[in-house]
Write a protein that binds this DNA or RNA. Structure first.
Ligand SMILES: [Zn+2]
Ligand SMILES: [Zn+2]
Ligand SMILES: [Zn+2]
Ligand SMILES: [Zn+2]
Lengths: 470, 470
DNA sequence: GAATAAGGTCACGAGGTCAG
DNA sequence: CTGACCTCGTGACCTTATTC
């Protein structure tokens, strides 16, 4: 009975979104591969997450250089209205820099180190959503409704997407295999929050994946939002001059804009933090609903962070986590995979296919070890391996989560087509001005008690912190 | 089953939208657990207790790396005055390392293994104190004076916190039921130290939870103290490389800078070293006052460290310990819960407390026994009224001491209603300032959570999880 | 046996380099 | 000046050791 009700509501939701979210202006990006990301500034395939946003090498270097000597940047001759794209990015430094800031780049938001798996998953999910969105709503949403906030971010134009039911299902299934969630509350939370992150805002920009608060204190300012940590300290205390503040896109804006890939957050919330019972349903707290030992893989093999398989260690978290992650990935793959996949029910994948072909051609340049792994995963994606494995939570071929791996393939091919689209998006974005302001805001001062931070953080659609532990 | 999950996820979606669409109020996702700790160095959520202090993964690794090659760390360009936080922690290694040492990190203070429940309790108590402190003194510390090294310590901007009288009271009561503490002297000591230790310095850093002597040998040197384990060496002997010695902040100095949660230093010394009587009050020695066997639960069930219930084993310690712990936890919960608690009658005690602290500061290191007695008397002094539950040693629902547990319950229990609240909290926070109110809110919030927990524990017997890892 | 920290591994990003 | 490439510190995750 509950289930009925729930499903009903689910449907309602879906409908709702289909209607509302149509606008989605996401261009048909070239079929982003799992890990793909585009440069938020110019649209070129991103080389990574730099200074708080996914950017290409060029924009990364540009921002790094420019930041040091802003004075060297001349005024825009075009009244600051230049639309930045791959082709013209070097034509107007002022606008390029502005765009950089618009997308949230700042020295202070830089982070180091490996990205958490949650982050990676988030990216995957987003891609998936985007794809779906693109295929489904493509036509309609040429022009996404401007996001209310000061508009700054609306640029992103993409309407919020609803979560893919299939994916949810997958997750649910995964969860069923997920053994006691206890103890892994944080992770669960994160996991749940995954979809909430917006690509543009990007999953947390701070130094640590674990930090959740990052975007919590965003404030709207001008065309964008400034991050204002709760600081008890004055901004000036910042050691360097550089990064005190972070200019972040408006959270809401990010929602829609972020792209099609937007999912329902609620579904992802971790049990513990979930405020609604719903969540509980999805992710029952260990001690609560699932006292009975969950179906646990019997001594199954898991892949560790390093993408190697290992036997279950006593660490339950790891296992469950891996399972969960893999489930997500598989669901994604299945969707993306050619119709044939047992899981795949979608139709829209055609576009994707093309991309794949193209992608391959490029693979060349740099391969490092990762690629290998990537290859493998890719292989799976295409019905290679397949079916059987995917279902199995204890799969033996865990998907490679490395970010680079995916990129290579995809982008190389790149897609010319996207350029036009990108432009349009950018146009919207352009309005913002780079304000400067950088200043203050940065600091999210940690001084506050964690509690405060965390609690509050969610109000604003905080970008999700995908850190495992967080 | 799957259907259930699916529906659940749908629900989650719905909820999500309800929330997000409105305000985007993100729900309280993270809601840090009671056990939460922040990195004492950068403020990020701590991953655990590393090298003598609660730190995040990054600071842990940094310290581990740096310790081996100090020479590789370049001078601070900022005159050693950098304020380390999550965002800028990578910008100045020198200051980061300094901060690490300031908070008590050292290779010598490393330890392995599971932490004792006493340790966990200590953590809980600290959290509580911090919260209180935050709410109480918030205004004053809006702008902490810039810290500087030598000056670094002056930073102390934050007023020392006294221990919560109510809590002390509770503990005293608990102690009355606590049977012979004999044999667990060390633990007792630790326990006593628990509250006395500053968060930053953190509960014992040595190899064993039971070892108390750890911080005794601290010497003041310059702006900080060098820890020299067992050694009498002069401050200059700086460890040089690896480490046996640790540069420790002057006990007092460390106080303020560390953060809001900072407590009164005097209070932190280990009983043996503790100079104040306060500690004694809190934790009366077993052998002293309470010789008479406390009402012992007749064959009641207790929860062991692993959070499982077990029948009384012949180990009296366990029983008494559990009782004690639970009493503490419950008292904490009750405190946090809406003021209504029957226990809270003491309003004025703060002053007293303060006094005590001061007193303590001098007393030197030794006397434990005295304290105990002191405690007892104190206890009597205050009319101890404890709520029935709390008194009852024979409670059947021992609290789960695993650090992670706390989170789960809370959230689960509190359904939708909380959402609104959370939102409001968040909003407040957004402004950027941590106002006192927030603190209060938090408290309330927590109290709610606690209530839930408590109920839960009673009815469901869900013990509090003290596990570090969430 | 479970919890939990030290240590190790290696994905990643900031910076630096230097042809173009 | 730009941006592909390289270096190296960082930190997320894993493994092993230790303690409860
Ligand atoms: Zn770019
Ligand atoms: Zn321009
Ligand atoms: Zn840290
Ligand atoms: Zn410095």
């Amino acid at each position: 009975m509950n289930s009925i009700w729930l499903t009903a509501s689910c449907l309602g939701l879906l409908c709702y979104f289909e209607n509302t979210c149509e606008k989605l202006a996401w261009f048909h990006v070239s079929r982003i591969k799992s890990m793909n990301q585009q440069c938020k500034v110019c649209g070129e395939p991103a080389a990574g997450f730099h200074f708080g946003a996914f950017t290409c090498e060029g924009c990364k270097s540009f921002f790094g250089r420019s930041h040091n000597n802003l004075h060297s940047i001349s005024e825009c001759k075009n009244n600051g209205e230049c639309v930045i794209n791959k082709k013209n990015r070097t034509s107007c430094k002022a606008c390029r820099l502005r765009k950089c800031m618009m997308v949230g780049m700042s020295k202070s938001s830089s982070r180091y180190g490996r990205r958490s798996n949650w982050f990676k998953i988030h990216c995957l999910l987003q891609d998936q959503h985007q794809q779906q969105a693109a295929s489904q709503h493509y036509r309609q949403q040429k022009t996404p409704p401007p996001v209310t906030l000061p508009g700054a971010l609306n640029i992103l134009g993409q309407p919020a997407q609803h979560m893919d039911p299939r994916l949810q299902h997958q997750l649910a299934i995964a969860m069923s295999h997920h053994q006691s969630l206890q103890g892994r509350t944080k992770e669960d939370l994160l996991l749940m929050r995954l979809d909430s992150m917006s690509p543009s805002i990007s999953p947390e920009s701070h130094n640590s994946d674990t930090s959740v608060e990052v975007s919590e204190s965003r404030l709207v300012a001008g065309g964008g939002i400034f991050l204002n940590n709760n600081t008890k300290c004055s901004p000036d205390q910042r050691p360097g001059s550089n990064g005190k503040d972070a200019f972040m896109p408006f959270p809401f804006a990010s929602l829609a804009p972020l792209g099609p890939g937007f999912q329902h957050p609620a579904a992802f919330f971790p049990p513990s933090t979930a405020t609604s019972q719903n969540n509980a349903i999805l992710f029952p707290p260990s001690s609560f609903l699932y006292r009975q030992p969950p179906p646990k893989p019997h001594h199954s093999v898991f892949k560790n962070n390093n993408n190697h398989y290992t036997h279950n260690n006593n660490n339950g978290d790891v296992c469950s986590k891996r399972i969960f992650l893999d489930a997500i990935l598989r669901s994604q793959q299945s969707q993306q995979s050619p119709k044939g996949g047992s899981n795949s029910r979608e139709e829209d994948e055609e576009d994707e296919e093309d991309d794949d072909d193209e992608e391959m051609s490029v693979e060349g340049s740099s391969l490092r070890k990762r690629r290998l792994s990537y290859t493998a995963s890719r292989r799976e994606r295409r019905r290679v391996s397949v079916s059987p494995q995917q279902d199995d939570p204890e799969q033996e071929n865990p998907i490679d989560l490395s970010m680079k791996a995916c990129q290579d393939d995809e982008r190389l091919t790149s897609p010319e087509g996207s350029v036009g689209d990108e432009v349009s998006d950018q146009e919207e974005e352009e309005r913002g001005e780079i304000t400067e302001e950088n200043g203050e805001h940065d600091d999210e001062y940690e001084s506050m008690a964690n509690d405060h931070k965390e609690r509050h953080s969610r109000s604003v659609a905080a970008p999700i912190d995908l850190t495992t532990r967080a």
